[in-house]
Amino acid sequence: MIDNTIIRRPSWRIRGNLGRRTHLLISLAGLLLPVGWWWWISAGGAVDPIFLPTPPLVIDSAWEWLRDGDLLGDIGISVYRVVTGFLMSAALALPLGVLIGTYAPIKAFFEPITDFIRYMPAAAFIPLVMLWVGIDEGAKIAIIFIGTFFQMVLMIAEDVRRVPMEQIEAAQTMGADRDEIVMRVIVPSAKPAILNTLRVTMGWAWTYLVVAELVAANSGLGFAVLKAQRFLQTDKIFAGIILIGLFGLVTDQCFRWIHRYSFPWLYRK
C-alpha cells in the first residue's frame, strides 16, 4: 500500500522527475501567479498607481516608448554596450584563465591580484573611469569589463583545473607534448564548463550595464529607467526593468541552446 502511493506520486520523490506537460503547467503558474497578484493589488485601488501601476499601464507605457520615444535605440545601445564589454572581457579572460588553470607560475603571479581586485565594487570605479576614459561609450564598456573580467578569469581557471588528471596523464602516455595536451585535452574537456561560466557572467554584464547607465549615460535602458524616476513615471520604470529582465532571459536561453548544440555528447544517454 505504501509502495503504491509512492508510485502514484513520483513527482514528490526526492529528486523526482515531472512529465513534460506537468512541468510546463507548473512553470507557467509560477510565472503567471505573481503577475496576477500584482494585477489584483494594483487594480484594486488600494495602492496609488504612482507606487504600483497596473500591468496594462506598464504595457501602454512600453508601447508609447516604442511609438513616440526611442525604445529601439535604447535597446540597441544597451545591447551594444553589454556585448562589447562582455566580448572584450571574454577575449582576455579565456586565454588567461586557461593559462592560470594550467601552469602554476602563471597562477601564482595572477591569482592573488585578481582575487584582490574582484572584491572591489565595480561601481566604485565609475568616478575613476570617467576621469580616465571620459564619459563616452568607452566608459560604460569599461565598467562592464571591470565588473565581469576578474570573476570570469577565476571561474575559467577553476573550470580548467577541474579537468580530470587521468585525461591529461593518458595523453602524456600516448606521447602528447605540452601544447597538444592544452589544445587537444584541456580546452575541449573544459569547454562545456567554460560556456556555462560565460552564461553566468553574461548575467552580471547586464547588471553592470544598468549600473553604468544609471550613473554616466544619456541613452540606453538603464538611463531611461533613471529618467523615468525623475518624472515619477513608475509605469516606465516597470517597463524598463521588465525589458532588461526579458533580455537577460533571452540571452540565457541562447547560451543554453548553444550548449546543447555544441556538446551533443553531454546530452545523449
Binding site: P164, E166, A170, V185
Partner: peptide, 14 residues
C-alpha cells in the same frame, strides 16, 4: 613504449 590504463575518467567524453 609504455601505455597506461587508469581506473576511470581517462576517456575523452567529447
Amino acid at each position: 613504449d609504455r601505455a597506461m590504463v587508469f581506473q576511470h575518467y581517462s576517456l575523452y567524453p567529447w
